[in-house]
Write a protein that binds this DNA or RNA. Structure first.
Lengths: 158, 158
DNA sequence: TTTGATGCAAATGGTTTGCATCGGG
DNA sequence: CCCGATGCAAACCATTTGCATCAAA
């Protein structure tokens, strides 16, 4: 039987799926994200991972599933400017202002996550100054990761 | 004769164009960005603006020109997640740490620029903690602009 | 059983590329 | 003149959609 190793109870997940069917394909996609918590997977990557596991899922279904899981608040969609959308699991303790940022290495393409937020004060400043109601933000740093600084970027996609 | 109303002297621009030809098409694209300093133009928008002016430029040429101008450091490429790349003029007083951020309205799609940076301390923290050499960043805030908060988003693309 | 989900293939839309022609330096 | 630039059309690639079939509840 399929085991759902998420902090969140399966019943809660099912609750979020109220109007939607928990099909094997959707379970597999969730499973893939749970097994790749530190990854930022594109649709194509989810597709490749699905065929490496039990069952291959149609690419169209993957796209539709990713869209659904994002709407259900289980995934976050991110754009790193590499021409494809990527998704990451939304942490359980996620709240309006508990965000993390991404360090994108320009050499190996690796993506690190950092916890520091420090954007509260800036958001407050902006909301007051421009009367702009902020509901989300996106902060990415581009540069060179420690490994690529050392070996001069011998390998790609590390 | 074509006048280059950029703060930067034309001679400097030509210097940056050393290996490249300053063709009418490239001049027109530059001109369009100079006349839309507060805009964040997509290739398609530059194309439309080019046909509204003197001469229409082929879309392929626009893409190639945008790529060139970015490589020359005259334009910045930005991705707001709307499925197309956008470009903005790089300000003359641009320096490593003089960045601005974007407020993207989720209703009308309007884009405001804000001057506040306040990212220095965060960058220093990250560079020290993760040994990641930051060369650029990308900060976008998504939410509701003041006008859309008022009229409930009656109109689009304001 | 019924309605939503799947999968395939075709359509879409932004972007890139091959190639013959053009023209700036 | 020569080599890089242009323009057109075709190719590309990520993503979406139409539709017949399938299966979860």
């Amino acid at each position: 039987m399929w085991c759902f190793p998420l902090e969140k109870k399966l019943s809660e997940i099912k609750e979020q799926f109220k109007e939607h069917r928990l099909t094997p394909q959707r379970r597999l996609v969730l499973e893939i994200f749970l097994e790749n918590r530190d990854g930022h997977l594109s649709a194509e990557e989810v597709y490749q991972l699905s065929r490496e596991k039990k069952g291959e899922i149609g690419l169209a279904t993957i796209y539709r599933t990713l869209e659904l899981l994002e709407a259900l608040g289980l995934l976050h969609k991110i754009n790193f400017g590499d021409g494809r959308s990527r998704y990451e699991l939304v942490p359980v303790d996620y709240s309006e202002h508990h965000h993390h940022h991404h360090l994108v290495c320009l050499v190996c393409g690796g993506i690190l996550e950092v916890e520091e937020d420090l954007l509260h004060q800036l958001e407050e400043l902006i909301e007051a100054k421009h009367n702009f109601c902020i509901v989300n933000h996106n902060l990415q740093f581009f540069g060179y990761c420690s490994r690529c600084q050392q070996d001069g970027g011998k390998d790609k996609q590390g």
